[in-house]
């Protein structure tokens, strides 16, 4: 019982720790450098290409991040089930990339849906760098 209590408290406190998009970028960049020592710094232009690139899925349909998020990250997007998605660019949505667990959850889901694989830390780092550059 006490163990569960402390576990819940730990999870809550970890979640409650609001991070900034810059911190998220820093974290993924550090991870990317670990994975690949040749990686020097995040590239907003590579993130731009990544965001807009279309991929042919196994079932024949073409998708990109922009399919749901629209080509302009300052604009709200729409899910396939007709629900609004708040803008991806932190300049248009201050909540974006402020919750590390939430950020990871959506990378996990959407990388699988769009790329049919997980994303590398380098891709995540470039992706956030691009979205931070959109003013």
């Amino acid at each position: 019982m006490t163990k569960t209590f402390w576990l819940i408290l730990l999870i809550l406190s970890a979640n409650a720790q609001a991070a900034s998009p810059a911190e998220a970028l820093q974290g993924y960049t550090a991870q990317a450098k670990q994975e690949n020592p040749a990686y020097k710094a995040p590239s907003a232009s590579k993130g731009d290409v990544f965001f807009h690139a279309t991929h042919q899925l196994g079932n024949g349909t073409s998708v990109s991040c922009a399919t749901c998020h629209t080509a302009n990250p300052r604009q709200p997007g729409k899910t396939r089930a007709n629900k609004e998605i708040l803008p991806m660019a932190p300049s248009a949505n201050t909540q974006r990339f402020t919750d590390a667990a939430k950020t990871e959850k959506w990378f996990r889901r959407n990388c699988q849906d769009v790329l049919e694989r997980t994303c590398t830390a380098q891709e995540k780092s470039d992706f956030i760098a691009y979205l931070l550059s959109v003013k």
Binding site: I11, R80, K105, R108, R109, N110, Q112, D113
Partner: peptide, 9 residues
């Protein structure tokens, strides 16, 4: 058709 996975808890 979409990945909506959640953590176990």
């Amino acid at each position: 058709g979409e990945n909506a996975s959640l953590d176990k808890l």
